[in-house]
Amino acid sequence: MSSPSRKQGWDLHERMMSQDPTVTLDVFLTFMGPLIRALERNPGCSYDEANACASDAVYAYLRHPERFDARRASLSTFLTQIARHKAQDSYRSSTARTRREQDPRSIFEVHPPAPNISLEERVDLKQRLDRLVQRIEGAGLPERDLAGIRVIFTEERCSMESMAEALGLLHLPQEEMRQAVRRHTDRLKKVLKRLCKEDPDDES
């Protein structure tokens, strides 16, 4: 099923501004399916989340139809934008929760040091990592940056998808997302480098 046309959206909006009692149902019938499908295309967005966010978007419009400006976008685009923002917010809060529950120190278990290093070196490595984690946690970085840093830490080859997921950039078009991920990764690596240099015992 294709997404509703601009004309369909305009007709519905005109009815919304009148006293038509069944138009609210028609807005749901016209847009819920396409909105859910559009949201479900984003990796990490389940059907349940898509359903809830699409419903949020339609209810937001029903409460304040006057906020829609037909000169700026079609009703379909308007609702899709609201639904995507809702999905993004919901994704960010659930990602933040998951990430909060994970400790970057787990890198030691994910990427154990080479087996031929001595016990002293191993302990030293662990202590340096602990100090770095403390500095990262104390740097007052926004949750999004912390999520990105965790990806850099825990993934041997930090993939674009996992970085985009952590930074909440999955809603962007592919090329825009690639550029944003690269920009943020470079920035976060610089932050990490600076924090590493702050360790007086770190000679690297």
């Binding site: 006293q19 038509d20 009692p21 069944t22 138009v23 609210t24 149902l25 749901f28």
Partner: peptide, 21 residues
């Protein structure tokens, strides 16, 4: 469930809105 998503008839247009629904 579909009816639940319709506007509640009210005001001067009450009778007309009930009729439409």
């Amino acid at each position: 469930q579909m009816l639940a998503l319709c506007r509640k008839p009210a005001g001067e247009a009450f009778a007309e809105q009930v009729k439409v629904i």
